[in-house]
Computed example of a mutant assay.
Amino acid sequence: MKRGGNFFWGVFFGSMAGLIVGMMLSQKKEEKIRNILGKKTEELKDNFQIFGKKIGEEVQKIKSNIETKWKNKMKNKTEKTNQDKQDKVEDELGT
């Protein structure tokens, strides 16, 4: 009976030791995984910020180009309208 009891206690203490070591290792692995995920998340966040900044700059350039073209078009239209009015007045005056 003593042999059976020793075997039982050996299995019990071995299981407990394995459980404790497993928990300690899994916590370290979790920390490593969290650190890796945290770093990757920061890298991804930084990359998105850089990407967003580049897109913002491109949008600003496009907006500026459109505004310039629009102003030039309106200026040309105004000049054409003024020239048409001047031609009409000259036609009416016969000059």
Rank of each mutant, 00 (worst) to 15 (best):
K88M: 12
E30Q: 15
Q60W: 09
T68Y: 05
N82C: 06
T95C: 10
R3T: 01
G38L: 04
T68H: 04
K80V: 00
Q60P: 01
N82R: 14
L44T: 10
T41M: 14
Q27N: 15
G94Y: 07
W70R: 14
I36Q: 07
W9A: 03
V21W: 06
G14K: 02
T81R: 13
K32S: 07
I66T: 10
V89T: 09
I66C: 00
T78D: 07
M23T: 07
Q27M: 14
K85D: 08
F12I: 01
F51N: 14
G94E: 04
R3Q: 09
F48I: 11
F7P: 01
S15H: 02
K54A: 07
D46T: 13
F48Y: 11
K75C: 01
I33H: 11
D46C: 07
G94N: 15
Q83I: 07
M74R: 11
Q27T: 12
Q86H: 07
G5P: 00
T81F: 13
S64T: 07
K54H: 08
V21Q: 01
G4D: 15
Q49N: 12
N76C: 04
I33R: 06
G52M: 08
M23E: 04
L25Q: 08
F12M: 08
N72D: 15
K85T: 11
G38H: 03
G4F: 00
D91T: 15
T78H: 14
E57K: 07
K69Q: 03
K69D: 01
K61Y: 04
D46M: 15
E31R: 11
K88D: 09
G18K: 01
W70I: 07
V21S: 02
K2M: 12
G14N: 01
K29N: 10
N65S: 06
F13T: 06
T41L: 11
G10W: 06
E42S: 11
I36W: 01
D84Y: 09
K71S: 10
T95W: 09
E42P: 00
K32M: 03
G18N: 03
R3I: 02
W9P: 00
D46F: 14
I20E: 02
N35R: 15
E92L: 15
E42D: 13
G5N: 08
A17L: 04
G18D: 01
K29W: 05
K61S: 05
I66A: 12
K77R: 12
N6G: 07
D46W: 09
I36G: 02
E90G: 00
V89Y: 05
T68L: 03
G56L: 04
R3H: 04
E43A: 14
E30R: 05
D91W: 13
K40G: 01
D84N: 14
N47A: 15
Q49A: 13
N35V: 03
E57N: 10
Q49P: 00
K29R: 11
N72M: 12
F12Q: 00
K28D: 05
Q86K: 08
F8Q: 06
Q86P: 00
E67V: 10
M24Y: 08
G14V: 00
I33L: 06
V59H: 09
G18I: 03
G52K: 08
K61I: 05
G52F: 09
